[in-house]
């Protein structure tokens, strides 16, 4: 594993000749010939549901392994790593934000934020004092400390939960942030405020951001807009 603090010329994401198909009953296949994201770039990936975005994200995050072709993140070919190493890689290098239900509802927001560090010792080391780092993050995200430390995450509003999810994705400065429809559970006003915070933090940390959404209106803020249908081909067969 390369040292993330060492500047390299490698792209944040580089995909070439990727082929993947889900096994089991749902025969869904995805093919991406070439797609890359530069370091520090913010990319808006436009995709309707069913366009294969979840599949693509699971490949970028190393949850699934391509059948053929390369998926490189930060210069590391994920396909060459074993399952446990890919999980470790994801923990160390990638912060993930979902559409909603990002948090373990029974745990405090603070524990939710600290959770990835348990699987990523290097990221933990970068934090220094993880607790202080988490609280610094939530301060800048406008979350009160009493809320973060004590209430179970289920007691937070959706907007607050999404901000906690941002803090969890950013803690320990992973170089790549993947956001999957992070604003679709928020109303229009909250969406804008949320994106302001997300962009500010991502840029402050110099991270790469890939945000996937079916809402094209969000695209204006990003360095680059890519439609999933332009880079990926999907095929579907019904097993029945």
């Amino acid at each position: 594993m390369t040292d993330p603090s060492r500047p390299t010329t490698a792209d944040a994401i580089a995909i070439s000749n990727l082929r993947f198909a889900w096994g089991g009953r749902r025969r869904f296949g995805l093919a991406v010939d070439t797609f890359s994201v530069r370091r520090g770039e913010t990319v808006f990936l436009f995709g309707e549901s069913g366009s294969g975005k979840s599949t693509l994200l699971s490949l970028v995050c190393g949850v699934n392994k391509p059948a053929s072709g390369q998926v490189e993140v930060d210069g590391t070919d994920l396909g060459a790593l074993r399952g446990a190493a890919r999980d470790r890689f994801r923990a160390e290098r990638i912060g993930v934000i979902f559409q909603m239900f990002n948090l373990l509802p029974y745990a405090s927001p603070l524990d939710n934020i600290l959770l990835p560090l348990h699987f990523a010792p290097e990221r933990r080391q970068r934090c220094g004092d993880p607790r202080a780092a988490a609280l610094d993050l939530t301060d800048t995200l406008g979350l009160s400390r009493s809320l973060i430390e004590h209430a179970p995450a289920a007691d937070l509003s959706v907007g607050q939960q999404q901000r906690v999810a941002v803090a969890r994705a950013l803690i320990g400065h992973p170089p790549l942030i993947i956001a999957d429809e992070p604003t679709s559970a928020l109303d229009a006003g909250a969406q804008s405020a949320f994106l302001d915070l997300l962009f500010e933090r991502v840029q402050a940390f110099g991270a790469t951001l890939v945000l996937v959404s079916h809402d094209a209106r969000l695209a204006t803020r990003f360095d680059r807009e890519v439609s999933l249908s332009d880079i990926a081909r999907t095929h579907r067969e019904d097993a029945a």
Partner: peptide, 9 residues
């Protein structure tokens, strides 16, 4: 969620 933050199966 556990898997997303890097937990192994």
């Amino acid at each position: 969620i556990f898997r997303a933050v890097g937990a192994r199966p």
